[in-house]
Nucleic acid binder design. Structure first.
Lengths: 266, 266
DNA sequence: TGGTTAGAGTGGTAAGACCAGTTAGGAATA
DNA sequence: TATTCCTAACTGGTCTTACCACTCTAACCA
């Protein structure tokens, strides 16, 4: 009853947060259910109450729980359209398939490419060329992480070049899903050979300020994935979400050399 | 130097969070800048260190700061495409215009309508009819809040009916902006008279499982706004929302989260 | 029976202490 | 003088104890 997915004697604060979030996302604690009290959680996990409280604050901020003074903390229902939900939460629930993701990306990124053709600056253009040049110069077999990171960076650059903050926001909110999908695509020879060149088609259209061509090129790019994914189309995205390209120091270094620096205080 | 937008003698923990967030969102503290230490903040604001720490955890969760043990907390650069950014943050920065929002909504909701036509369930249909019937039965002059809420609810129902969690996620992430825009549209007689009936066109197409017609009807709906907004098209969403802050509770809530209506008591 | 109330439980806050990692400046060195 | 090294003063991370306001429940009394 009081077993929260793992026995006692844990360690850090981060692991506590992960445990609690996992317990909620796996529906071990269902919506509306009351969490154990802060004192009880502290006791169960062998940490102090302030640590528990800080973890609860983060869960609260993620929209996973609501806290009522004097009563307790309660699991909230995860509702994608009510705001606050993150892509990770949806993926963990297992409802997101590649079919869903590709359809959404096709919509979003085709529009982004079209708007980029209209609004791109010369600086946008330079950066995109640098990314694609870097992508050509790196062997996929040698360093798949870097390749995937550059691929995502190109799509991100398109979103930035659109000049539309709402488009950029939407891309940012599914960014981790895109990273996962790019990893999946990298392992597919046909997708690599035919997909990567289309990047150039998109970029050329953006350079020429041809919105129609840019939209079509980006749509082609994602239609290719649609055709090649086969049985994976209806597979949950969760299976490939683990990888996190942003955490790679080498990629961060490469991207910094490529242009804009990743805002790192130092 | 140590003046954080307000002198000492504050009050609750929520107000501390609001103050800190506001100080960051107004760029009083710029990206990369180091925040005062936890002990210093506790001293400045007259609260205890745990309160400061919990506030910092929430800022961290919102992606506004990064924390380095032994060094301090640092303001992060708000980057829409890097994930974690919220619509409120973007609006507060003043970069989002109705032109941006309408373009994004046209893209998103046209696709949502098309997918809804393909994937809607009978339950979806019932709910959408109920919403539109309720909308017809309520006088706009009497209760604008309810009307606006129902309007948003219809668009939300379309997103839900699409059956695509990624689409739903995107809608949820711009939901508050949609609410603001609907309020703006409610005050426009031409928009009301011609816009509301188009809801029926969308719903009929969804009912008939005609994806093409549904996409077009939704696009028409938003194109109408595009044509009618006039000079407001290139006005920041935040500024237009400001005017009606007093009489609209839900909007006031949005603005409060954004930190605008915080009448700074000395 | 029905209303009141006391107590236990909950989250909210405060204060003080210790730890581990970081940083900067002074002392010792070459 | 220039360099290296080390200490002391930070920083955030954690623990402990204590008290407050609020909520709920159950025993109590009228």
């Amino acid at each position: 009853m009081t077993d929260h997915g793992g026995s006692a004697i844990p360690l850090t604060t981060q692991s506590l947060l992960d445990r609690l979030e996992s317990t909620i996302l796996t529906r071990t604690w269902v919506a509306g259910q009351r969490l154990p009290s802060e004192r009880q959680l502290a006791d169960d996990f062998g940490v102090s109450r302030p640590v528990v409280r800080e973890s609860l604050r983060r869960l609260q901020e993620r929209g996973l729980i609501v806290v009522h003074p004097g009563r307790g903390s309660f699991v909230t229902e995860i509702n994608p359209t009510r705001g606050g939900a993150s892509a990770e939460q949806l993926v963990h629930l297992g409802d997101v398939t590649f079919r869903h993701l590709i359809a959404a990306r096709r919509m979003l990124e085709s529009e982004a490419a079209a708007q980029a053709a209209d609004h791109r600056t010369d600086a946008d253009l330079v950066r995109m060329y640098e990314i694609l040049d870097a992508l050509d110069s790196v062997s996929i077999a040698d360093n798949m992480e870097v390749c995937a990171g550059l691929d995502v960076a190109f799509h991100e650059a398109i979103a930035v070049a659109s000049g539309n903050p709402v488009i950029q926001l939407m891309f940012g909110n599914i960014r981790r899903l895109v990273v996962g999908m790019v990893y999946r695509s990298m392992t597919d020879r046909a997708l690599r050979q035919h997909g990567v060149p289309i990047h150039r088609h998109v970029l050329n259209a953006v350079k020429d300020r041809d919105a129609t061509a840019a939209r079509k090129a980006m749509a082609d790019h994602l239609d290719l994935a649609w055709e090649q994914y086969g049985a994976d189309l209806d597979r949950p995205v969760a299976s490939v979400l683990d990888r996190r390209a942003e955490d790679l120091p080498e990629l961060a270094d490469l991207l910094r050399r490529v242009g804009r620096s990743l805002a790192e205080p130092r």
